[in-house]
């Protein structure tokens, strides 16, 4: 306990207390966020030079590499392919997931729908399922010998194509992400909707406004900040997709070891032992994520994250 001077209670006191409260967070932030980022940047600018056969002590040394790791990463066809794949994946996942989340949230908020409590719980449930487990479950549901979709389709005489074929696998992975994320985003939007005083709707209803008009004209604009935040978080998560494809890999041969950029980082770092390429690739990804998310926030002139300054 600090013994602050009693006289200065009126004005904000000069005290060490706020620094003490922030110290653990700042130290951990420095150790596990700032330092690793700095180290990644450092590693990305270095490379290993092998002398002779590369055997024995001192035959391998780290030297400065300038931007060569970056040019190598950017011109790597595997990297370009994985980036394009994740871009396509993001275009499928983010609008579908947020569109459904908004739809469900609006429906939960209208007194005209029944079974709202049950639906809210059921749709939120996948958030409790780790991505690895949900990929496992869906993976089995995609396998022709297990899949109920194949079973039903076969009975109807419309055999389905392989859901994990090279053309379909991106949708298969996207479905897992949508399934896992829609409930969480729905709850975020629904929480924001709950904050609107119901008098507004009553007034609008008296003015002859229909439920759909109320949804579009009043509710959507009010939850826009929440939508923006869910969009940014979804974007960040999408660019890092890793657990789903890694888990599905044993079930199909259509997912390569560099299927997503993060999988390529993992392969370079831990299978190929090429830490410097891996570092360069991850710095590029982090930079791209930052530019996209920060750029988007600036673009929409969002006041989200504008704090309760006082």
């Amino acid at each position: 306990m600090s013994t602050g001077s009693r006289a200065a209670t009126r004005r904000p006191r000069r005290s060490l207390a706020p620094y003490a409260f922030l110290a653990p967070a700042v130290l951990l932030f420095a150790a596990f966020l700032a330092l690793p980022i700095g180290y990644a940047v450092y590693l990305s600018l270095r490379t290993v030079k092998v002398r002779g056969l590369g055997l024995g002590k001192g035959s391998r040394e780290q030297v400065w590499a300038g931007l060569s790791n970056y040019s190598k990463a950017l011109t790597d066809p595997d990297f370009a392919a994985s980036v394009l794949r994740v871009a396509a994946y993001g275009v499928i996942v983010v609008p579908t997931m947020l569109g459904l989340a908004l739809l469900f949230a609006l429906l939960l908020d209208t007194p005209r729908a029944r079974a709202r409590k049950f639906s809210r719980l059921a749709i939120f449930l996948p958030y409790a399922v780790p991505a690895v487990i949900s990929s496992l479950l869906w993976g089995f549901l995609y396998l022709p010998s297990v899949s109920p979709f194949h079973h039903v389709a076969d009975r109807l005489g419309w055999p389905l194509p392989d859901l994990l074929s090279s053309g379909n696998v991106i949708f298969a992975v996207a479905n897992i992400a949508v399934w896992g994320g829609v409930g969480f985003n729905m709850v975020v939007i629904y929480t924001a909707l709950k904050a609107i005083p119901s008098e507004i709707y009553e007034a609008a209803e008296l003015d002859g406004c229909g439920q759909i008009a109320i949804a579009w004209r009043i509710k959507v604009p009010v939850v826009l900040p929440s939508l923006i935040m869910t969009f940014v978080f979804s974007l960040i998560a999408t660019l890092q997709v890793f657990a789903e494809p890694v888990t599905l890999r044993p079930l199909t041969n259509t997912i390569s070891s560099t299927w997503t950029p993060l999988m390529k980082v993992y392969r370079d770092a831990f299978t190929r032992d090429d830490l410097h390429s891996a570092a360069a690739t991850s710095v590029i990804l982090a930079f791209a994520t930052f530019v996209l998310s920060y750029g988007f926030l600036r673009l929409v002139q969002s006041r989200a994250f504008g704090q309760e300054n006082r």
Partner: peptide
């Protein structure tokens, strides 16, 4: 906004 991708390898 920092993606865990940039942290994973250096943290390791």
């Amino acid at each position: 906004l920092v993606p865990s991708v940039v942290l994973a390898v250096p943290q390791y």
